[in-house]
Design a binder for these strands. Structure first.
Lengths: 341, 341
DNA sequence: TTGTACGCGTTATCAG
DNA sequence: CTGATAACGCGTACAA
């Protein structure tokens, strides 16, 4: 019978008059153990409701069979969907996933990472928080054999694997669409300065304009930290212009939604004629009565799957002491929404 | 110097010519170790970047310093906010949180729970998935000393701790508000049948009508499984009635949003005059141009904090071998939204 | 004040 | 085919 602390392999071995190692092997169907023994062991294990002590296994094997996802914010549906994709692949590989929120705060991020290292996490998929500058911790982690995949947000260091959207591809598709719809004054609401991705998308915006022979106007570009207040300040500035924008290319769709909110309260007449397009197709857009013009469909679930697959390649390669680096850039479809006229 | 597998206490002890136990104690500032020794140890630990092996600790102490949250779906902002509240309290207690999605599937839920037990999780906060009937696993877990707090969704078993909204209070406030706004035909869109909470809210709806001397009409009540399709089928039925509803009391606000979507496409003229109120104040409502009439403000973040605090009480009580049961029912404010007229 | 000895549950190795 | 033994890193009771 079981004591209250849980049945162990030793308990079973004792009852069956065999050694713990035999039981251990029998439990995992090791062919060097006779079929009868295996059956006896499994039967008793079931009867006694033996639950393997995963903590002991982790310790013994110096592995956790767990990978971590570190994201700024769960409320952002882009990340939530990505998690679903990652989990899918993790489950296939018999791995568990732990989700950590950095709240876009690099100190908290470091705490999280240290704890993950300490817990012998097997791999990490991370969306770096917006102020993260110091990448030494990531270097150290890779040196310790913990594979990392950077997700969505890019970083300076070229030696890390990553999965993200193709900014140039996305910007070009967005700008082309807006031009096709007759716009000349296309503003760009960029992400926070501290984020490398903000600059990449800004540059992509410039390039896309160039390719369409539209002169770049720095006055049409403002940064936002993604809060409504910040976006609204930026917009107030933009609308002071003699030739205010008639369309927006935004860092991500959430910013586009805030633009709509702003217009509704400050320039309701412009609402209908202002086209907005940005990165990210969010489920919540389904719920909106008037939608943004379009989104660059990032399919974050698929991105998550890709990141997880990449991570598992690295986990296996680390075990084999190989070296593995890959950067995946995903091109984007534009997703048009239809508003009632 | 450190080997690549990470510095251990033994490494430090060896280098400093002392025993591992001395180092172990020094590291945690044990006063029985001389100040000088403590300093020497800590200095070297820092120099060598010693990272305690949490996996070893967990194993040795048979604790994980981690609690788990099991929810149906991360995309639901109600749960995402609850997580934030839980995390807040967990961090204060130096605990980690792992988040698991059951996708409202009880088989997956069981897998998750088994794995959590196996990992020696210290406590669980769970939103049971909608088909969960068999509660023996929870009984077993409590027997094994793993405290559980049920969150938001109620279960039959009275012997578990829980935190949820006060259905009667909520329903009464909602119905009162709708009546005040002149409605007589108030429909109820209930949750799935398999969910006890659906019945509780349904009953609360009946009671609230009674208290207002409005006869209960079963034809005004339909269940939805929360998908748009299901809700839309229910609505189609409802609008076949000779006296179709002019207002809705819904299981949760997401259903209310789907009602709006449905009306917009099928009965656009009714949209303006149909009042909708349900459980849950969701951040995404900010983004809507026309909002539901009101929400019962569940403040899931605060609910999360309460659940976590309750769980920590239980964790401490378990250690002290005490018994602890509490059910928290939170009353709700109604939150009115103002639509442009 | 410091050190010794042991156990936590599991698995890998190697001997029988 | 099975068993004995050691090892993983840490904490702790007890001895010195």
């Amino acid at each position: 019978m079981s004591n209250e602390k849980g049945v162990t392999i030793v308990d079973i071995a004792h009852r069956l008059n065999m050694s713990a190692s035999t039981v251990s092997k029998a439990l995992k169907d090791d062919k060097t153990i006779s079929a009868i023994t295996r059956e006896r062991v499994k039967a008793l294990a079931k009867e006694w409701n033996y639950i393997p002590n995963q903590a002991a296994r982790n310790f013994q094997q110096n592995k956790s069979f767990t990978l971590a996802i570190v994201i700024p914010d769960l409320l952002d549906q882009f990340y939530a969907l990505a998690i679903n994709g990652i989990e899918e692949v993790a489950i296939q590989n018999n791995y568990n996933v732990i989700i950590c929120q950095s709240y876009d705060n690099s100190e908290r991020e470091i705490n999280i990472l240290n704890h993950l290292v300490s817990s012998r996490i097997d791999g990490i998929i991370i969306v770096v928080s917006k102020n993260t500058k110091d990448l030494t911790i990531f270097d150290n982690m890779e040196k310790q054999g913990i594979p990392i995949v950077f997700f969505a947000r890019s970083i300076q260091q070229p030696s890390f694997s990553s999965v993200s959207s193709d900014h140039n591809d996305g910007a070009l598709k967005a700008i082309n669409l807006l031009i096709k719809r007759g716009h000349k004054r296309i503003a760009h609401l960029a992400g926070p300065n501290a984020l490398l991705t903000s600059h990449l998308r800004h540059t992509a915006y410039k390039k896309a304009l160039e390719q369409n022979n539209i002169p770049y106007d720095a006055a049409l570009v403002k940064a936002t930290d993604f809060s409504y207040e910040s976006t609204s300040t930026a917009l107030t500035e933009l609308y002071k212009d003699k030739h205010p924008p008639t369309a927006f290319f935004v860092f991500k769709s959430y910013v586009g939604l805030d633009i709509k909110r702003f217009l509704q309260s400050s320039h309701p007449k412009k609402l209908k004629h202002t086209d907005i397009i940005g990165f990210g197709n969010l489920p919540l857009i389904k719920q909106l009565e008037t939608k943004p013009t379009a989104s660059l469909d990032e399919n974050s679930q698929m991105m998550g799957r890709q990141a997880a697959e990449l991570l598992f390649e690295k986990i296996k390669d680390t075990e084999a002491e190989k070296f593995h680096l890959r950067k995946i850039l995903l091109s984007l479809a534009t997703l048009l929404y239809m508003n009632k006229q």
